[in-house]
Design a protein around this nucleic acid. Structure first.
Lengths: 254, 254
DNA sequence: TAGTGGTCTAGACCACACA
DNA sequence: GTGTGGTCTAGACCACTAA
């Protein structure tokens, strides 16, 4: 029997009491350990991580077990595997954002990364929706960024990004880059792992319509996104109002 | 070296010419073979398929290779694996539809399968959009089903289903069940494997609004779905107009 | 040529469902 | 208890990349 030193025990061989959480496979413990390395910055975006063999002998499990852990992380877009080259920590570059997070596509043509023009940015008390979305206390503040996103010079999205002020100190002092998730990763060590979006159809208010250069009452696609970091905590709320005359939200059901 | 009798060759050991398609792993050939069994009805929805060991010895590959093929099919929701019981062909029951294809969720509460009331059903020439979506010829006919779908007695969706008439003979003669995909599978041997949805925000016409019991011009979420069968051919086009006052379209970005 | 990930195999044992 | 899928291991070889 192989002896593993991970966590409490691979299999609860001694304790014969009722199992609370059942059984935790070894490769999942290995995977959790790798996620921890991503969270604490031991493995940084773009880096090549050690080879399967090195990791296996370091941890004391077989290469196959390491492989299964790495495969799951690659399936979650946290790692990128390249045959012949190695395994790399995924970066939040425009290609990944486009693939994973940006579902708005021109009706004729292919997805492109949009331009951004910031309207305003401010630190303010969180409203009810933001508190719910981000798990904030009643008197917590949010950084609120409003911007217009355009494709090919044409305004397409009016976007309001709400961030827990405590999590992103100093963010409002610098320029706001087009690619926020890349900033989160490089300056705050926060990796956006996945997100949940809720879509509705709404009519634009006069003010909203003005920013987008259309008539008041124009139907728009409202996307309410909550983005989660590696540890599963809500890190960003993003409310987008999208014109869908010449673009659509693409959703693949597999 | 093991000898595999699958397809042309596992590895092109003899032919030293330039490789056109590169390399096709054994487990993918095995997987394709299983998909063929699903398509030709050798494996029917709900059936338990042979165990990994039986399949392995039947085909002449190792159990691990069979396992990898089955795992991919399970990940695509075509098979369901149950530890201790066996591997089963997925059915198009309401639970699967809800999980895989029905993304409209009440704002407060959990997804439920909607009721349907058919407005009309007719066989008519395909319009341009239907021809494009379903790869039809100019004079092909479609079966067009319009219905209202409700949750908790409240009209929520005005849905127009377009089907290639040639593919579904006799469908208009019987009753239209609430769950169409289950009918496709049981009566026509057609499995809906996945779908692509394009979402837009639109304003309801007077006629559409009447059916849904709201005012003309109300914003609605338009979902343009193309459903693909196992062999990748477009089998259904479904245009849904959804009220999103008390419900939303849920999209998980992973 | 060396090093990496990818495939394939064989065998042992564990967790789970059911009769 | 028996049979199923799930995990873990060890080793061989293939495909790809870069030096």
């Amino acid at each position: 029997m192989t002896e593993h030193k991970l966590e409490i025990a691979t299999r609860p061989e001694t304790s014969s009491g009722a199992e609370i959480l059942g059984f935790r496979p070894l490769y999942r413990q290995v995977k959790d350990q790798f996620v921890r390395r991503l969270m604490d910055g031991r493995w940084l975006p773009g880096m090549a991580i050690p080879s399967e063999g090195q990791l296996a002998s370091e941890i004391g499990v077989s290469q196959g077990t390491v492989r299964k852990a790495l495969d799951e992380l690659a399936a979650e877009n946290l790692l990128v595997r390249r045959q012949g080259r190695g395994t790399f920590v995924a970066e939040h570059d425009e290609q990944r954002i486009l693939f994973q997070f940006f579902k708005l596509v021109p009706d004729d043509g292919v997805a492109r990364f949009p331009d951004s023009r910031v309207l305003d940015i401010a630190s303010e008390p969180a409203d009810a929706a933001e508190r719910t979305a981000l798990n904030l206390q009643p008197d917590d503040a949010v950084l609120r960024i409003r911007r217009i996103r355009s494709l090919g010079g044409k305004p397409l999205v009016l976007e309001t990004v709400s961030l827990p002020a405590r999590v992103f100190p100093g963010l409002q002092d610098g320029p706001v880059p087009n690619n926020l998730y890349s900033l989160f990763a490089t300056h705050y060590g926060i990796t956006i792992a996945n997100a949940r979006e809720r879509l509705k159809a709404v009519a634009l208010t006069a003010d909203q319509a003005l920013h987008l250069g259309v008539a008041a009452g124009t139907p728009a696609l409202e996307i309410d996104r909550i983005a989660l970091s590696l540890d599963g905590s809500a890190v960003e709320r993003r409310l987008s109002l999208c014109l869908t005359e010449e673009a659509h939200y693409q959703s693949d059901l597999r």
